[in-house]
Design a binder for these strands. Structure first.
Lengths: 338, 338
DNA sequence: GTGAAAGCGCTAACAA
DNA sequence: TTGTTAGCGCTTTCAC
């Protein structure tokens, strides 16, 4: 690989001092036309590209934002990323992506590495780290916006509490379902989904059954296996509340393989409304959330925070994500034939 | 924001020299237990994180790889990214993502900015820059692997020439279709798809009709509008070869809205086999390509190139991607009722 | 308008 | 084993 040229090379070739080179490249101080011409010529000849790290070392700005995200398999995340990317690129920032695989160890490791890189800010999605830890690691040290993470500092973009899954569950109940399962997880951010589920059952006096709550992993295999187990029960549920569309889709596929028809034999409601959910084998009834817009908001917000360098106490705020229930074809009314 | 502490602060607090601090942190030279204890203590107290940029300035390694990619909307790209990310993260590298939106200006701009950042290597997907420009910008200056880009240097992961769409088109022909359209683009990398289409028509003596080739953009709107126009023709095609699944899906949706049934009224074959293509409203017959694996290969390869710092001449190679035609439900045989 | 020199935060000789 | 110093590539005083 060719040695890459430095400002020194340019200065030497142009026969000026390095400060002059710097000046013409940055336009900080007026420079004689003669010098500037020589510099430009030399830059051209040497194909000189200023070293961004050397610059950052001085400016203390890296123009990069770390995105800490569980994975890219669940289509929710690329869609969010798209929004973030859009908002951020127009301001000249770049994104560095860290996949945590929902592992808090990895998440912690990556956050520390990003801190070492002196990224200008963080967007942390579905964090699985405790608030204490998060606080200790980040609070007062950098700019951060959380998405679905429920930290007690920084800017938090979050769901309307437990209401959304409450509504989803209620919908199933109103459609006449009495045996309702849920599939999801119970940690931090998404735990509220579980709470909403419980609340609805309670409020409408529908039996809660422990064997109907599937606290599963994130891989398709785990979801599939758990679904099979659930659907093989002698007294299986007629409706399922999935805590995200990705899971709902995996369930659909598992059901299909088992010869269980949706919605005839099994109703299912999802969460997120990822963009493919309406073009599925069976279009999914789901809680719709403005994913792309959330991404844009997260991107815009982190830049605002960085630029104004608002301190923690000013920036703490919650931004609730609006949602709506979209009725499609994956839920059947039980009232007719029951 | 708190001032972040430097090695100097640690040295002062630990009452040792900065080189001692550096030594214990990097384990380069043996240090007395006493000193090292003091250093660790100070690091702890100050929550010291070594500045990665300062390090990189010296080591000339950034541990980051730039991924230049058209967008994240076409699900092919996140899937590829997932593979890249997986391969790269285990080696300690991070990815910085540049969305070009298929714009060669943006692509050029981003490549230059990444060059300034001294990324260790590039993975460039579906480049829309000319080979001359690419050569001038990158050749001999950094490590690069191209995916679907057909450069004449670097490591190229590419399709088996024009054969895949030739096969796709042939398939439609063998299913009895005589009026076949194609939808895609004719630039650089993906141009071969168009060539394959032409070749098959020619070889099997199927009429080529200029109004049946849709050289469209990438947005859903453009595809939709072009599809509508195509399907509104008095003499519309009975089969369509889409140059990627993303486009095929957009066509499906447009057709659905127009009341045109697939495959009864219109057959369609895609390209890529993105992971959702088998769970669609109408499972898509398509050319299947090992996207995730391609990503992994690209990631592994770029690291090999970086680590061995193989020079251009050694690294130029083509790696052809295997593909297979997957028959699902979006193509109908015309032989029965024609 | 321009150059010399200090310094960003770190590593790596080089002495001691 | 340890500290001093030079230097990575750049920006920015500070003189001239």
């Amino acid at each position: 690989m060719d040695r890459v040229s430095t400002i020194k090379d340019v200065a030497k070739l142009a026969n000026v001092s390095i400060s002059t080179v710097s000046r013409v490249l940055n336009g900080t101080t007026p420079v004689s036309k003669e010098s500037s011409d020589k510099v430009y010529k030399a830059v051209e000849v040497l194909d000189y590209k200023p070293n961004a790290m050397a610059r950052s070392l001085i400016s203390k700005k890296t123009m990069t934002i770390a995105v800490i995200i569980p994975n890219l398999s669940n289509l929710f995340f690329p869609e969010l990323l798209r929004g973030i990317s859009k908002a951020v690129e127009k301001e000249g920032y770049f994104l560095i992506i860290c996949n945590t695989d929902y592992s808090s160890e990895k998440e912690e490791k990556y956050i520390n590495q990003m801190l070492e890189r002196r990224v200008d800010g963080f967007i942390i999605v579905s964090s699985s780290i405790s608030n204490e830890k998060l606080t200790q690691m980040l609070k007062g040290k950098t700019s951060v916006v959380f998405v679905y993470s429920y930290a007690d500092f920084g800017y938090n973009i979050m769901e309307d509490g437990i209401k959304a899954t409450y509504d989803a569950t209620k919908y199933l109940i109103h459609m006449g379902h009495k045996k309702i399962a849920c599939i999801g997880w119970r940690f931090k951010g998404v735990n509220v989904r579980y709470m909403g589920f419980r609340k609805a059952l309670e409020e409408f006096n529908v039996d809660f059954r422990n064997e109907y709550v599937i606290d599963c992993g994130y891989s398709k295999e785990e979801i599939t296996n758990n679904t099979i187990k659930l659907l093989k029960m002698k007294d299986r549920p007629t409706g399922i509340v999935a805590f995200n569309d990705d899971t709902a889709i995996a369930i659909m596929m598992a059901a299909k393989d088992m010869g269980i028809k949706i919605p005839e034999d099994l109703s299912i409601i999802g969460y997120d409304n990822i963009s493919i959910s309406n073009i599925l084998l069976k279009p999914l009834t789901t809680i719709s959330v403005p994913i792309h817009k959330m991404g844009i908001n997260a991107g815009k917000k982190i830049i605002q925070i960085i630029d104004n360098s608002i301190s923690y106490s000013d920036t703490y705020r919650e931004e609730y994500i609006p949602y709506e229930l979209i009725e499609r074809e994956s839920v059947k009314s039980m009232d007719i034939d029951s």
